[in-house]
């Protein structure tokens, strides 16, 4: 009976909308933080966040700032983020065949790395909390059922990272209490911008 779900209806609507929108020249190079929604736009936004996270952990791991259990955790999270990037690149090709997959932005975390273990853990926690809040805000806008399922399966993994990193940072693991709070794009991008070159 899955044909009767809201998602398949919304997906059918999306096909119709896409047909209407074709040739309207919407800008595939629009910044990920822009306002127009649509699955391709949401994929690009999520991909931006995942690229930033992946870069961050790659630099943390190769700089050897962490040790013991924290180093192992950074490696595990790095691996998760790499898989998220790959999955979202695939989703991009699937929901918008023929449109370019978003390029990786250039990032700079040198100040964070210079700050040592404490600054690295705090930044990791901040990035993960932002990521979880961002996915939560986007989920309701997604039209494609498969993309929604992918976003949900990533959202809860970001939340896992966030909780444990908060704890390691000495912050409350569940800062919003029993109900997580969604983070809108403007808030997200204003916190991510500082790491983009």
């Amino acid at each position: 009976m899955s044909e009767l779900t809201r998602r398949s209806l919304v997906s059918m609507a999306a096909v119709g909308t896409a047909a209407l929108a074709a040739g309207c020249g919407d800008d595939s190079n629009a910044p990920a933080g822009g306002t127009p929604r649509g699955d391709f736009d949401i994929v690009n936004y999520a991909l931006t966040l995942e690229y930033v996270e992946e870069d961050f952990y790659e630099q943390v791991v190769s700089a050897g700032v962490l040790s013991g259990r924290e180093a192992a955790l950074a490696e595990l999270i790095h691996q998760n983020e790499t898989e998220h990037v790959t999955a979202l690149q695939d989703e991009s090709r699937r929901v918008a065949p023929g449109r370019p997959v978003l390029d990786r932005p250039r990032t700079d975390f040198s100040e964070v790395l210079d700050g040592g273990r404490g600054e690295v853990i705090r930044t990791a926690a901040r990035l993960e909390n932002i990521g979880a809040g961002a996915y939560l805000a986007e989920a309701g806008q997604i039209e494609d059922a498969k993309l929604l399922a992918a976003a949900l399966s990533i959202h809860s993994v970001e939340a896992r990272h966030a909780a444990v990193l908060n704890r390691l940072a000495g912050a409350p693991p569940l800062p919003d209490g029993a109900f997580a709070v969604a983070l809108e794009r403007a808030q997200v991008m204003s916190q991510i911008d500082r790491y983009l070159v």
Binding site: A132, L136, A139, G140, L152, H155, S156, V157, A159, R160, H161, A162, A163, V164, R167, P173, L174, D176, A178, F179, A180, V181, A182
Partner: peptide
């Protein structure tokens, strides 16, 4: 959907903390 999203994030945080 909103409520489910807000709750699942919290459940995931619980799961991770228990695992940790």
């Amino acid at each position: 959907l909103d409520t489910a999203g807000q709750i699942v994030q919290v459940e995931a945080r619980h799961a991770a903390l228990v695992r940790f």
